[in-house]
Design a protein around this nucleic acid. Sequence first.
DNA 1: TCAATAATGTGACAAATGTCATAGAAACAT
DNA 2: ATGTTTCTATGACATTTGTCACATTATTGA
Lengths: 201, 201
Amino acid sequence: MTTIYLAEDQEMLNTALATLLGLEDDLNVIGTATDGQTALSEIIQKKPQIAILDIEMPKLSGLDVAEQINLLNIPTKVIILTTFARAIYFEQAVKANVNGYLLKDNPTDQLVKTIHEVLDGQTIFSPELVTTIISAEKNPLTKRELEVLKEIKTGKNSKEIAKSVFLSDGTVRNYISSILSKTGTSSRIEALNIAEKNKWI
Amino acid sequence: MTTIYLAEDQEMLNTALATLLGLEDDLNVIGTATDGQTALSEIIQKKPQIAILDIEMPKLSGLDVAEQINLLNIPTKVIILTTFARAIYFEQAVKANVNGYLLKDNPTDQLVKTIHEVLDGQTIFSPELVTTIISAEKNPLTKRELEVLKEIKTGKNSKEIAKSVFLSDGTVRNYISSILSKTGTSSRIEALNIAEKNKWI
DNA sequence: TCAATAATGTGACAAATGTCATAGAAACAT
DNA sequence: ATGTTTCTATGACATTTGTCACATTATTGA
């Protein structure tokens, strides 16, 4: 009997999956949570064989939980289950040594199948995910530029951004100029739109 | 035996709910779709007693489908099932005479319960939804201002917006000035953030 | 019908934004 | 060891953005 822990913040999906997985005769859902913090502490305590983690959850993201599980050397195998095929998420997941990464864009059968494959020792990544990652525009922005772009998103003006990131106003504006030229845009909002479309932020 | 049609574009939830509802011994899921267009034509053809509709779906939104069902006088009762407690969605749903509006932030039991209540002739709205709607800032923007704000979102500058909405550059800037003052902000991006937070756009 | 609001416009001004040239230091890759 | 990229900065400039005062015409709710 395989023990499973499920962390998913959308109640409807959480309860639906918990019930469904429980119906499989070799799977046993030993706990569920709707936030990352609860999930982590219960996983540490209960040591399930498999943890299914959503990414976007309150308090602690599924990726943070995965990272902790990895660092603490807990034997639980992790499957990330998410809506988003973001490059950043994917990279973080790989770093955290997750055993599976499945998109919610798949039927439940696929989840069950993935659980079995992961139990079998395989590492499984959704093919659509891999395709998306490959076809996404590679982020041409430097660390600093990305940092500035994130500040832009909050609606700050150049001076405020400068204060936040400890740079001069002029430097910030130079970075923005560079961001615009790299994204082929001519205003902050356009640049944000491009970055969001390509999942850079 | 109650016939149910389910339209939900996220495969994982779609399949999970279809299976779960099928397990109830008085419910029979006679079809599912992952886009609004398919859902509408199948609902017209199969005339289920209940249609469960997600809002954000490709091709046709769940609200569009609900509206059509209402206009065509199809006897199917509609339950909207969505993540979002947006005022605009809610208003549209009321206009389309839907019989229920449930947030995905509820467990599956709640969905089953709602189905039974709706069958029973009741009209059910998620209490959290009602609370959210009441507590949301009322949109202080005029039609024109909102129109301009949507243009802002695309990243256009004042002149481009002026062209799109057939106004003078100065007028557009006046509208923007008014938007900023009404939202208590001092830049386009801040205004967008506020509008998005309050689900005005 | 009357007052308030909305829609539209102009002109003028201050501030913010974006561009460009230029340059030194640090980090990194080959 | 050397060349490239990144990080940081300044000054000058043109353009855009946002504010304000003011004015005319619909529209509309009371």
